[in-house]
């Protein structure tokens, strides 16, 4: 999953309708794809990105030697070649292969496997449903009270 997709995704748990993003992303395996730089595409995508979310996600995943993103969009962001290059790298080259996304308001965990995020909320037959943090906490509490 690329960070462009991550930036556009939101939590779809019905109870979590007000603050359904950002999703906090964690990765155990990253991949860097070499896509040809497309300045027009990057500048066009800039307007629909939540830059702060992108910055946070990218900084948490960034490794040494990879381009840095400035803390805010430069004023000439749409034409600044250096900025667009690092932006393009962040949104379109960095690929989260294994990891998870956590909704910051409801705690739902969306696992990422083989660089495909699983956004299905309902439990699917024959598959282990990913649990949310709250649920796990509740379970622990229940266990404690039983003891």
């Amino acid at each position: 999953m690329k960070l462009l997709t991550h930036n556009l995704l939101q939590c779809i748990v019905p109870a979590c309708r007000k603050h359904h993003y950002p999703l906090k992303v964690t990765a155990s395996l990253l991949n860097v794809e070499e896509n040809p730089f497309d300045a027009i595409f990057a500048s066009r995508m800039l307007e629909r990105l939540e830059y702060n979310i992108l910055l946070e996600a990218y900084n948490s995943l960034r490794q040494d030697g990879q381009p840095e993103l400035p803390p805010a969009v430069p004023e000439d962001g749409a034409s600044n070649e250096v900025f667009l290059q690092s932006l393009f790298f962040a949104i379109n080259c960095l690929d989260v292969v294994e990891g998870a996304m956590t909704c910051s308001s409801c705690g739902r965990i969306y696992p990422i496997h083989n660089s495909i995020p699983n956004m299905i909320v309902r439990a699917i037959e024959g598959e282990q449903p990913p649990q949310s943090i709250e649920k796990e906490q509740e379970d622990e509490e229940e266990e404690e009270s039983e003891n």
């Binding site: 999953m1 690329k2 462009l4 997709t5 556009l8 995704l9 939101q10 939590c11 779809i12 993003y21 629909r48 939540e50 083989n114 660089s115 495909i116 995020p117 699983n118 956004m119 299905i120 909320v121 309902r122």
Partner: peptide
């Protein structure tokens, strides 16, 4: 994924809604 079709993929149940922020696509 194996065939490398060039797009980013996402597993989702359409009946649960499309998991994208408003005004993005």
């Amino acid at each position: 994924k194996e065939r490398d079709v060039g797009g980013d993929l996402c597993r989702s149940d359409l009946g649960e809604g499309i998991p994208f922020r408003p005004n993005t696509i």
